[in-house]
Design a binder for these strands. Structure first.
Lengths: 353, 353
DNA sequence: GTTAGCACTCAACGAGTGAGAGTGCTAACC
DNA sequence: GGTTAGCACTCTCACTCGTTGAGTGCTAAC
């Protein structure tokens, strides 16, 4: 067949089978894969010499690479990409594991702000890689209720309950001591004027408040603080990112001298980078796989990300996923991420329906 | 002097100077310290032969040890202990650094739940070891206000504002759809009956509520949930532990094959262990140093903890500190922890005064 | 009590070596 | 024609074995 030599054309079934075998062997062994080991362990129906020929073709096509002359083959990012897209077996979590995970979520059913942490922990355990999760962030936030509690003569706690049920809290320094009774009056005023009000409407409502001469100074200060809090919350693309199981990744042999991993960890602290990622992921809808150099960030060139959005488009969206070495068990990871994101969907739906 | 040979007696000044030099050299070089290197780099006024004699005595006294015959000396836990207690120079943070830290705290002045995170991050940066911090947990908690917000037809968000200004939130599933107007009535009832009430008083108040036949079922369910939330919060010794800079510790040569470090990380996840530690630390009042095997937990035998309580005894206490290899710069670490705990004290005092 | 000198020890380093795994090529095979 | 056996070649890895050098402990002189 002429096609075989064609670098861009689709691969023959045999080449596909060999590429798949190389990847699966490499994922478990973490060592370059030789032709002989392959024919021994996989039922390819051909000799090692043929495997060598095919491997050479796969290398020419860019799916495999060669650390040095006398070493076996290692998959490239393109190899993994092809694997994930058309070679990998579909994989779903074992029913037992599904049940176990559901049970774990049942334990914290009512603590919605724990869900995303649990998702990260669960994914870390299931994939033995680092689990990542962000909380579901509402598209537009709306003030439901404001509260002020005196904690001392100098400070009060300013609590804002948002329409989707979450809570923000900050301290408000008091210039002069204020009785709780006075605070209660201010709270009443604030709730009358700012209650059930979106971020966009806030500035106008506050302006109204400002023009009325009888508005207490403290009420105005509190209102402005509420506005700032809401604006900040609204502007942040990612509220928080929780990760668990980074140690699993640390233990992978490719990161034993951890210099590279350090940068990965730092990149994970970067809200902007993750924010951009979340935005991109949330737009798609399905599980997304970013392999090695497909990640924009230089630091992430040695790792892969498997991410999926959850929540309700237009209302509240978050992301869950897994970070691991490019040499990772993609089918399992994709299956786990798909399952957990589905579970999170259910939970969020239950919350908002 | 006969004393020199006395194993239990206090050390001669010269021996102390040599022990101190060994420790300081070892802390920076991470390699066993030889007699010659010592006389070259420290002004000891004696020859290497004398240093060798003294080192042999220090080893007999248990302050130093010997990896193998032809290697230099390494401090033991007892050596570090003596160093920390009487040999180490006192150390306080440079004014520039103090200012920088204060500035950082100024940035999040009003977000009190960020303080402890920032403390951990700051300590990690200042000591290049892992920074640890727990939030200030109030001694006894008191309900200030309860709120219920409908988030969907199936669930409401139950918000409890505590007397010290912090907030707890959970989801309350609704068996039948409930209008926000109804919830408002229930909120009013709950606040009348349970507002400004300590955990201890809660059961009785709820009992009263229960005996009145006109109490709505939902109000009762919410009240019981509030009680459970408060009880759980009250019972937990440690609410949360935040750590930052674990990578610094990872990079230390003694942890390059990270098997041991993994256990340390796991121990840090263990709320009970940390809870016990916090209780012990909070009782003392000053900076506490736990060196290597002085830690009860087996996993912590290779690391040292430098911890200090902050807050107000009897009201709200938390702990900040540093975790590093036993070979760590104790004076700097102690100075940093002292400074940051002092700063946290100021902040908490400002909040409660 | 201190120090110079010396014999001794032991980890670390580097060179040399053999084994083993793996490739690529060629020629025979079907 | 594709497939396979055979073989020369390459390169890493693990091992050995001196050598080096830092460091000790002891002894005798100061």
């Amino acid at each position: 067949m002429a096609r075989r030599k064609d670098r861009r054309g689709p691969l023959e079934p045999r080449s596909q089978a060999i590429l798949r075998a190389v990847i699966e062997e490499y994922v478990t062994s973490a060592a370059p894969v030789g032709s002989q080991a392959l024919v021994e362990r996989y039922e390819l129906g051909v000799s090692s010499a043929t495997v060598r020929n095919v491997m050479a073709e796969l290398e020419a096509a860019g799916y495999l690479s060669h650390p040095h002359t006398s070493a076996g083959r290692v998959p490239t990012d393109a190899g993994y990409r092809l694997y994930v897209e058309s070679l990998a077996p579909s994989f779903s979590l074992a029913p037992v594991e599904q049940l176990m995970i559901r049970h774990q979520f049942g334990q914290v059913e009512f603590a919605s702000e724990q869900w995303f942490r649990l998702a990260a922990t669960t994914l870390a355990g299931a994939t033995r890689a680092a689990g990542l999760a962000t909380p579901a962030k509402p598209r537009s936030c709306r003030v439901r209720r404001i509260d002020l509690v005196a904690t001392s003569t100098r400070a009060a706690s300013l609590v804002v309950v948002l329409a989707e049920g979450s809570v923000k809290q900050e301290l408000l320094p008091l210039e002069v001591p204020v009785e709780q009774r006075e605070l209660d009056l201010i709270v009443q005023l604030l709730n009358e004027r700012l209650g059930d009000c979106s971020v966009r409407q806030l500035p106008r409502r506050i302006e109204e408040l400002q023009t009325q001469p009888e508005t207490p100074r403290l009420a105005l200060r509190a209102a402005l603080r509420v506005e700032r809090m809401m604006r900040e919350f609204d502007a942040a693309a990612v509220e928080d990112v929780f990760s668990d199981g980074l140690l699993y990744v640390m233990e992978a042999p490719e990161f034993s001298q951890s210099q590279t991993l350090r940068r990965v960890f730092n990149a994970l602290q970067d809200r902007d980078y993750l924010g951009g990622l979340v935005r991109r992921i949330a737009g798609r809808g399905e599980v997304q796989v970013l392999i090695g150099a497909e990640n924009e960030a230089q630091e992430m060139h040695n790792v892969s990300l498997i991410l999926a959005p959850y929540g309700q488009p237009g209302r509240a969206m978050g992301v869950v996923g897994v970070l691991g070495p490019t040499r990772m068990a993609y089918p399992q990871a994709i299956g786990s991420v798909r399952y957990v994101s589905g579970l999170m969907n259910e939970l969020v739906e239950q919350l908002y329906r």
